[in-house]
Design a protein around this nucleic acid. Structure first.
Length: 424
RNA sequence: GCGGCCAUAGCUCAACUGGUUAGAGCGCCGGACUGUGACUCCGGAGGUUACCGGUUCGAUCCCGGUUGGCCGCCCCA
């Protein structure tokens, strides 16, 4: 007996029964994003490690300790993508998209990888649905993309999701805030947690969203990013809030929202769902504006704004609603005797060619066991095919939910089924 | 990366705190009902008690390690 082999920790299989929910979310996303003019892209799951180091930032947790990095046989350092914005930007630059279109809108759906300790809503391979809008620096673009997320979440039927909003300023004003913050934090160095002491040297903004109560109090009493915004940033942020209000999208300004990636400028936002099913993984989606990242990657000077949502978490929330997804079986073809089995297979084949969702027990077996199987598949109707039906060319459609059998001609089953109300 | 809890049938859980052959419900398969499911009754299959080692006359139970899962910190999706 050989050793049983198991999947990689933190990476899950999705099987029928679960997959329908995922497909539903993905379909809704494709529909919704398409409606907003976003085109789907698919980039490789592996990229040059330098791409993430230069965009996401060397001092971030993602790059610093969560990346799956390895060397290929040519000695290149490659990484499994931990997020989707950088690969999209790379593709945008590589294909010189700016020379073709002033404004480009893309979305992607796919797996991301981060080496982390697992828990509810957090996996080493997880799935994101994300979108990026390149070429528009106007607040309207920020508002539109948040509108898209809001409409998508609402189409999914998810409620109690709060939009948190903040502005981190730009190259003109962030340095001043940064300096002031460091100065303030240094003065309180002894009072914050050990973690924050390290953070204030590497990435002081991160102190702002420390969950430690003491650190929170100190951060709250310190300099506020919003007070340091330069005039253009202030105007941009104000305009964005007016537009969101005009669109009827509720939001909360949270001046301590910073997010853990270095590439953001001005707008950052997070959609947070306070549902017990998510545990502490309450952020369902987040994003922001990154007007300088393209240049930093050696590309054109193009402003951009984007976001990503956690598909795993959306599915967790959807499951809580108890909804069922997946296509119902229209008809189960059962056979009354061995001699009719070939005819049953042929009938099922023909009806499938005609577009119906048909189930058939290829193993044959007793009629009773076939009926059980029919019940199990959730088929709306069952048709029993035997010698009598084959010679007369007529059969009955038995409604599995109960009710009288409906007589049909064997060569008109599809038409008959389509004429029946599809509601169960 | 740090701290805590856990691991028994496909699933959810028992097993009188070390003692015969590890049980139940659900699920699966079959029968009662040889052309009609879901309800009922009966039967069947399914376990190296996660893995490795230790203590003991004897370990699902106690100890150590490994792997995996869950929770908090951290961080995010």
């Amino acid at each position: 007996m050989s050793q049983k082999i198991s999947g990689v920790k933190g990476m899950n299989d999705l099987l029928p029964g679960d997959i329908e929910t995922w497909q539903h979310v993905e379909k809704l996303a494709r529909d919704m994003f398409g409606r907003f003019g976003y085109g789907e892209i698919r980039t490789p799951m592996v990229e040059d490690t330098a791409l993430f180091v230069r965009s996401v930032g060397e001092e971030t947790d993602i790059v610093g300790k969560e990346m799956y990095t390895f060397e290929d046989k040519g000695g290149r350092s490659l990484s499994l993508r931990p997020e989707g914005t950088a690969p999209s930007a790379r593709a945008y630059i590589e294909h010189s998209i700016l020379n073709q279109e002033p404004v480009t809108r893309w979305f992607y759906i796919g797996p991301m990888f981060r080496y982390e300790r697992m828990k509810t809503g957090r996996y080493r391979q997880f799935f994101q649905i994300g979108a990026e809008a390149y070429g528009a620096k106007e607040p309207a673009q920020d508002a539109e993309i948040m509108d898209m997320v809001a409409q998508f979440l609402s189409a999914l039927g998810l409620k109690d999701v709060t939009l948190n909003l903040n502005s981190l300023g730009d190259e003109a004003c962030r340095p001043a805030y940064h300096a002031k913050l460091v100065e303030y934090l240094q003065a309180h160095r002894a009072e914050v947690c050990a973690e924050c002491q390290a953070r204030m040297d590497r990435n002081p903004l991160r102190v702002l969203d420390c969950k430690n109560e003491k650190c929170q109090a100190i951060a709250a009493a310190g300099p506020n990013v919003l007070d340091f915004l330069c005039e253009p940033c202030r105007a941009h942020f104000g305009d964005l809030q007016r537009k969101l209000t005009a669109l009827g999208i509720p939001f909360v300004v949270n001046s301590r929202l910073v997010r853990g990636l270095d590439y953001y400028t001005r707008t950052v936002f997070e959609f947070v769902a306070a549902h017990p099913a998510l545990g502490t993984a309450s952020t369902v989606g987040g994003g922001g504006r990154y007007d300088t990242m393209m240049k930093g990657l050696g590309g054109p000077d193009v402003p951009a704004v984007g976001f990503a949502m956690g598909l795993d978490r959306l599915v967790l929330l959807l499951k809580e609603t108890g909804q069922a997804f997946g296509a119902p079986v229209d008809l189960f073809v059962a056979v009354a005797d061995e001699g009719s089995h070939d005819a049953g297979l042929a009938l099922a084949s023909r009806l499938r060619r005609e577009g119906l969702h048909v189930a058939f027990d290829t193993r044959g077996g007793s009629l009773k066991s076939q009926m059980k199987r029919a019940d199990k598949t959730g088929a709306r109707f069952t048709l029993v095919l035997g010698e009598a039906e084959r010679s007369s060319g007529k059969a009955n459609l038995k409604p599995m939910a109960g009710g009288d059998p409906i007589p049909v001609a064997l060569d008109a089953v599809a038409q008959a089924l389509r004429a029946l109300p599809s509601a169960s």
